[in-house]
Structures are given as structure tokens and as C-alpha cells.
């Protein structure tokens, strides 16, 4: 059971939206995490370096939050390594094949009313709802 947190989630969402606004107005780039991570190793140095800096910010900020006692507590309903590995392969392959994830399609793409992003977001949300229905209600053994 998790607590209903509409105000915190809305505030955090607005900050994520502001990050996307910031990246578009400063660099003219989409704040899509799968794209930033996926192309950090390829591409021209000019494109690689800001992506590396973004990832340093993304992964470094939680460490600062921990140091000052503000890191959120995390809970991991799924701990089975085979399930985590299968999920990771699907997420990595799917987001690169479909050119985006929750951030690139879900926040940035919908904000600029891209039909491709709207279709992708509706698709991955629908499949995720169905997947959770299967793993939580129809079959057991997923540690949830």
C-alpha cells in the first residue's frame, strides 16, 4: 500500500516539465532519458558531453539528497533477478526501438502534441496496465 500523494506528485511533475522546458529553450533538445542514455556513447562529442552532464545531474542529485537527509525511501516489490533482467531488456530495447519513454514521449511529445508520441504513450500505458493485471491478479510468483 502506498500513500496518495497528489500534491507532491504534481509538484514533482511540474519540476520535470520545467526540466524539459529548460532543455528545449537552452539547447533545443528533448528531455528524453532513453534517448539521452542510449546515444551518450554514440554521436558527436558536442552531443555526447551535455548528455553526460545531464546523467551526472540525474544520478548525482539523489546522492546529495541522501547526504542532507532528503532522499525518498524506495520500495522494491519485485526483487527476482530474472524478472528484473527481463524487464530491463524489454525497457531498453523497447524505448530505443520506439524512440522514447515516459519522458520523451509521455511528457515532451504530448506537450508538443506529436501524434507519434500520443500513440506511443497510450500504447505503453495500456500494455503496462495489462501487465500489472496479469502479474498481480492472474498469476503468482512475481514477489508482489
Amino acid at each position: 500500500m502506498t500513500e496518495f500523494t497528489p500534491f507532491q506528485s504534481a509538484l514533482g511533475g511540474a519540476i520535470i516539465g520545467f526540466s524539459a522546458l529548460w532543455l528545449w529553450l537552452s539547447l533545443g533538445r528533448i528531455a528524453g532519458i532513453s534517448g539521452i542514455l542510449g546515444s551518450v556513447v554514440s554521436g558527436a562529442p558536442r552531443e555526447r558531453h551535455w548528455r553526460m552532464a545531464f546523467l551526472v545531474g540525474l544520478m548525482g542529485t539523489p546522492l546529495i539528497a541522501t547526504a542532507i537527509g532528503l532522499a525518498p525511501s524506495l520500495h522494491f516489490p519485485v526483487t527476482s533477478p530474472p524478472v528484473l533482467i527481463a524487464a530491463g531488456l524489454l525497457v531498453g530495447f523497447g524505448t530505443r526501438l520506439g524512440s522514447g519513454c515516459t519522458s520523451g514521449h509521455g511528457i515532451c511529445g504530448i506537450s508538443r502534441l506529436s501524434p507519434r508520441s500520443i500513440a506511443a504513450t497510450l500504447t505503453f500505458m495500456a500494455v503496462a496496465f495489462v501487465m500489472v493485471f496479469f502479474t498481480h491478479h492472474l498469476i503468482t510468483g512475481f514477489g508482489v
Binding site: 532519458i33 548525482g60 532522499a71 523497447g94 526501438l97 515516459t102 506511443a120 505503453f124
Partner: peptide
């Protein structure tokens, strides 16, 4: 686009991680 989104949704629903949160949670 659509096949990619289907695979991503399946993985997201399986473990509850999408790319951004997974990277942010990694050091924690």
C-alpha cells in the same frame, strides 16, 4: 514505434522501472 512501445510497456509493468527513475534510483 508501436512495437517498441508495447515492449517498453511490458517491461515497465513487470518491474515498475522506466529509464529515468531507474538511473536516479541506482545510487540510492
Amino acid at each position: 514505434l508501436i512495437i517498441g512501445a508495447v515492449l517498453f510497456g511490458a517491461g515497465w509493468g513487470l518491474a515498475g522501472f522506466c529509464p529515468g527513475p531507474a538511473l536516479a534510483a541506482l545510487p540510492l
